[in-house]
Every structure is written in structure tokens, then in C-alpha cells.
Simulated assay, not measured.
Amino acid sequence: MQTIAERLNSARQDVSLATANANRPPNSVKLLAVSKTKPVSDIMAAYEEGQRTFGENYIQEGVDKIQQLSALSDIEWHMIGPIQSNKTKIVAENFDWVQSVDREKIARRLNDQRPAEMAPLNVCIQVNIDDEASKSGVKPEDVDELVRFITKQDKLCLRGLMAIPKANPDSHEQAQSLSALKELFDRYHTNLTNFDTLSVGMSSDMQSAIAHGSTMVRIGTAIFGARN
């Protein structure tokens, strides 16, 4: 049985190899360790190996971990799961990033509820790139309107796009989706300050995502083992 440290280092090697195979600069892809359902002890094991960015899908579980590990001020916490409007306040008060902004109402509430003493909240717009009814995210043609709204908010910093492409499509279909996402990302990356993050790719599609420009991959099971 491999330890978390061993699996984390293996995941880092996989990211580095995929980055090199895509002829991209070293360290141009960040690894977000997705720690949902995992105990604080597992996060600490990854932390001790130098991991500093962690992603949580469930708000209350994530906030509990943030509070338990509040002494570790260099951890960067990402909310990557869906957010209901009645939970925006606790998210705005605790997380460093929200990758799952998919509508104006959520963006407005996160902005209005971000404490004045905290740095602006980094946000990504979640795009439903394959128009799947089962997934959250804004349609590609509606991204522009949400970009315009978020960039006017003084307590939000728009950092990029996030997507969860269709699971296990054929490679051609997958490449088409990822290419469309990269084209959408590039449209804003060239014109907006701080718009530098394309969060796409998990264990199953990481290599293809990196080949199509991902700057952040979200890895959970390969690091922490099967979900509890």
C-alpha cells in the first residue's frame, strides 16, 4: 500500500511528464489536491510533502478543515463544488478561491459578503463545455456576460475558467471539447489582467487536458485513495 506522500510525488511526476510531452514549460501546470471526504490527517500528510493547494467540493466539510488548519496560513483553499445562494457567505469568509461560479447571483453575493479585511476572492467561471444537463456551469455563449459582471466587482478577482468535460468520450470528441475550452480561455487571457487559470483535467483526462492548455489539474483519488 503506497503512502499519501508516495502517491502525491507520483502524481507530480505524471503532471511533469504530461507537461513535457506537450512541449510546455516546466511548472506551467499546478496540481490541486482534491481532499473532499478525506480527514485532516491526510491533508497534513500532503502538506508535509510541500503541497499547499487543496480543493474541497462540500462547503461545510471544507470550512471545518480550514478552521482546524487555520494555523497553516500558507495553505490555499479552493472551493470547486456547486454553491447554493444561501451558502455564499460562509464561502466568501473562508476560501481563497472559488472555481465554480456559474451565475451572476452567486458572483454578486460572494462579492458583497467577502470581508473587507480579506484580499479579493479569486474566482473562476465554471463552463459547461459539453452542455450536459447533469453538470453545473454556464454555456460557452453566456460566458462573456458573466465575465463583464465579475470584472466590475471590487472584492472578486477573475482568474480564469474551470470545466469538467464529459466523462470518457472518444479521444476525438474529448479533444474537440478541450480545444473549444482553450479557445474560450485565450479570448480573455490576452485582454484581462490576472486571467491566467484554465482549471481542467482530473486523473482520467489529465494528459489530454494539459496537451490542450490546462494550467491546473484537480487530482483526488490518485493522491488520497478512493473517496470515503
Score class of each variant (00 low, 15 high):
Asp64Asn: 15
Glu104Cys: 12
Ile59Leu: 08
Glu61Arg: 07
Leu178Met: 03
Leu178Phe: 04
Asn23Gln: 14
Asn191Ile: 02
Ile83Glu: 02
Ser208Asn: 14
Ala107Trp: 04
Val98Ala: 08
Gly213Ala: 03
His212Pro: 08
Gly62Tyr: 12
Thr193Cys: 06
Asp170Asn: 11
Ser10Lys: 09
Pro169Gln: 04
Asp186Phe: 01
Gln51Pro: 08
Gln67Asp: 12
Ser199Trp: 07
Gln174Asp: 00
Asp131Lys: 11
Ser136Thr: 08
Leu72Asp: 06
Ile129His: 05
Leu8Thr: 06
Arg24Thr: 10
Met1Asp: 14
Arg148Pro: 07
Asp112Pro: 03
Ser203Arg: 12
Gly160Tyr: 02
Ile223Asp: 03
Trp97Cys: 15
Asn27Asp: 15
Asn9Asp: 09
Leu69Gly: 10
Val200Met: 15
Val63His: 06
Ala71Gln: 14
Lys152Glu: 07
Ser208Val: 06
His212Gln: 12
Pro82Phe: 00
Gln126Ala: 03
Ile129Tyr: 02
Arg24Val: 13
Asn21Phe: 09
Ile66Pro: 11
Leu69Asp: 15
Thr37Cys: 03
Ala46Gln: 05
Met206Tyr: 02
Gln113Lys: 11
Asp112Tyr: 01
Lys155Asn: 10
Cys124Gly: 02
Glu145Tyr: 01
Gly225Pro: 09
Ser73Trp: 05
Pro25Cys: 13
Glu173Ile: 10
Lys30Ser: 10
Glu132Gly: 14
His78Pro: 03
Lys166Val: 06
Gln174Gly: 01
Val63Ala: 07
His78Ala: 02
Glu56Ile: 01
Arg52Leu: 13
Gly81Gln: 09
Asn228Lys: 13
Leu184Gly: 00
Phe149Ser: 07
Ser10Met: 10
Leu161Gly: 15
Arg12Thr: 12
Glu93Pro: 00
Met79His: 10
Val147Tyr: 01
Thr190Glu: 10
Ile210Asp: 11
Ser41Leu: 11
Ala22Lys: 00
Ser73Gly: 02
Asn57Ala: 03
Leu161His: 05
Asn94Ala: 12
Gln99Ile: 11
Arg114His: 02
Leu72Gly: 08
His172Tyr: 08
Leu158Tyr: 04
Glu49Cys: 14
Lys38Phe: 06
Asp42Leu: 09
Ser208Tyr: 07
Leu181Gly: 04
Lys182Ile: 08
Leu158Met: 01
Asn191Gly: 05
Arg108Gln: 14
His212Ile: 10
Leu121Lys: 05
Leu121Gly: 11
Asp64Thr: 15
Asn128Glu: 04
Ile4Gln: 00
Gly137Cys: 06
Ala119Leu: 13
Met118Ser: 09
Ala133Phe: 08
Val127Pro: 04
